[in-house]
Simulated scan of single mutants.
Amino acid sequence: MNGRNILFIMLLCILTTNTQKTTAQALKALMARQTGIIEGKAEQNSRKETCCNFYNNDWCDYYLCCRNDKAYNLHPGKNTLFVAPDKSKIYNPAKEEFQYRYYRGIFPKKFNIETPYALPVKNGVRTAWRTDRHETKKTLCFKIEKEDTVYATRGGILCKIPSSRFILIYHPDHTFAAYIGIRDKFVKPGDDVRTGQAIGIAGQDNISISFFFLDKNKFEASADMGYPYSHFVPTFRTDRGDVRPVERKFYRVVTDDALIMQDMSKKEQKKYLKHK
């Protein structure tokens, strides 16, 4: 980034708040940008240098994409993108046309479609999925009774979202799982959850989940940078092994210790086994 862009960057990220939909295309509304999540500020450090700081007020990573400049990964908290020396002349580029946008997530480096997930119902119970026809993006609608408990399909951290009817979990490999149709939640944004943990109560018959990630290929292939996410059907651990389940076919849930601990550090694994 050069000095021509620093002041303009401080003014970007003026957003509009979208009303959360609870019917068709709920996932699209869920991923809408929220006011105040990303904040850009021009601040001075102890050496009186002007810093371009971006504050990520969420618990997941974000990708800041500058059409006429560079792109940056924004981790939770303070991110210093550029430092201008004291008394340097910084041109205000606001008279020129620049476009900056940000998106949830960053490009996965170690995404593996074979990584096993848990099915979202109680261990030992049978369930099946079908495609949710209300969503324009690939979303799996799992068989579950209203008021049954919903379980995390994979461990991660809860993101901030604009509706109480959804849960969004950010996984260690930078993929997401969006749970649609939650009534009562047992978790809140910022909580770390583990695979198979109870996270809420189904507010309707069946529970819809979409698994997705920020796709670098979609950025490179689309000049207007439209919807840059790819959705997928994970591999699930079942009584028939780790399989990519066939639509409308029933499988029995197997949420074992190996699955629960797969994303844990050795220290976390030791603590889990000690207290299980």
Rank of each mutant, 00 (worst) to 15 (best):
A84F: 12
V243A: 09
F166V: 06
F82K: 02
T16E: 06
A152N: 07
L214W: 09
E43V: 15
C141Y: 08
A71M: 10
D263W: 02
Y63R: 12
G200Y: 01
Y229Q: 03
F54A: 03
P189Y: 08
A94T: 13
I113T: 11
P228D: 03
E114Q: 08
G77R: 09
I207T: 01
D58G: 08
E49A: 14
I9W: 04
I144Y: 02
K95A: 12
D205G: 14
K138R: 14
T23S: 09
F219P: 11
G124Y: 10
N92V: 05
R104H: 09
K110D: 08
T238A: 02
T149N: 11
P120C: 12
C65Q: 05
T115I: 08
I161N: 01
T175K: 03
K28F: 04
E114H: 10
L64H: 04
N5E: 14
P116L: 03
L273Y: 07
L12N: 13
K138M: 07
K78I: 03
G105C: 14
V253N: 07
Y102E: 04
C52N: 02
K143W: 01
N112G: 07
I182L: 02
S46W: 12
M31F: 15
N57Y: 15
T175V: 04
E43R: 13
A42T: 13
T255W: 05
